[in-house]
């Protein structure tokens, strides 16, 4: 069984801080990491491959530096890594990205047919959750998003059964392969690679494919293939400027002062709130 995992290198948003004076983003020293949801997807792919004697190919679209994210995935036990890197790919939105990845999966499929594609449920920088379903739609594969558990996989009948997280609970669903799965954090716990695996990942050659290698049409990739465009980027207006009531400073009652102000200024809000719930002391 051949599984393809699609990953993305992202800035580590956990390291992002806001400059308290200028209210702008401090990017200095922010490292690029492999999107955490994607690491889960790769780990899940490797576990499935181990169970069903298959293999895992990891792909990503990005600049040459994205190679390091691919190596992290090789260390988790993926057999092969391919970097889709081409100037023509730059500026892609989710639509152009899913096109490029789907083209690559088509090519991989030609050499060694693909049964499953795994993606993280979303990337932590953009949080769009669009690329996984986009790939499934383009390839005509079944699509199972927000997968928390692979319950069963039967290579003989070519079916997979998963549990997905949806509004209000989770559903167990069964469908035919090939399929695209997008991973929730609890689908698998990425392993701490053993030394031999880590060494292998460091030595392995990573293939680089450009637009021509995946037979991508120029008008479908990168900026050209992206219907959306960014008009403006701005730092959200600081909420702040709020009123401060300091119980340490004030000899009088700061809490009472707050309540008076709050009940005075937020009349509408309180009416909505209290009317909806009957009354407060219920």
């Amino acid at each position: 069984m051949h599984i393809v995992a699609c990953i993305k290198q992202v800035p580590d948003t956990a390291q992002v801080k806001i400059d308290p004076e200028t209210k702008t983003l401090i990017r200095t020293g922010v490292e690029s990491i492999c999107n955490p949801y994607d690491l889960v997807a790769v780990e899940a792919a490797v576990q499935l491959a181990e169970k069903y004697s298959g293999k895992v190919t990891v792909i990503t679209m990005g600049p040459p530096q994205a190679e390091s994210a691919l190596r992290d995935c090789l260390a988790l036990g993926a057999q092969q890594a391919i970097l889709l890197s081409d100037r023509a790919f730059a500026g892609a939105d989710t639509l152009a990205t899913s096109y490029t990845l789907a083209q690559a999966i088509n090519k991989i499929n030609d050499a060694d047919p693909v049964s499953l594609v795994l993606c993280g449920k979303q990337a932590i920088d953009g949080d769009t959750a669009q690329v996984g379903p986009g790939i499934a739609t383009r390839l005509g594969y079944n699509q199972f998003t927000y997968v928390a558990e692979v319950i069963g996989l039967d290579p003989a009948s070519n079916t997979i059964t998963v549990r997905r997280e949806i509004e209000g609970g989770s559903e167990v669903i069964e469908g035919k392969l090939p399929a695209v799965l997008t991973a929730e954090l609890n689908l698998a716990a990425p392993r701490y690679a053993s030394l031999p695996e880590l060494v292998r990942s460091l030595r392995q050659e990573i293939k680089v494919w450009g637009a021509r290698d995946v037979a991508a049409l120029p008008e479908q990739v990168g900026l050209k293939g992206s219907p959306t465009m960014v008009r403006e980027i701005f730092v959200p207006p600081a909420r702040g400027g709020g009123q401060v009531f300091d119980t340490n400073e004030d000899k009088g009652n700061a809490v009472a002062g707050f309540l008076d102000t709050f009940f005075g200024k937020e009349q509408r809000l309180l009416e909505e709130l209290l009317a909806k719930d009957g009354h407060a002391q219920e």
């Binding site: 701490y192 690679a193 053993s194 030394l195 031999p196 880590l198």
Partner: peptide
């Protein structure tokens, strides 16, 4: 000996 599994070199 490293802190990884199978980590003796």
């Amino acid at each position: 000996v490293t802190g990884r599994a199978d980590g003796e070199v």
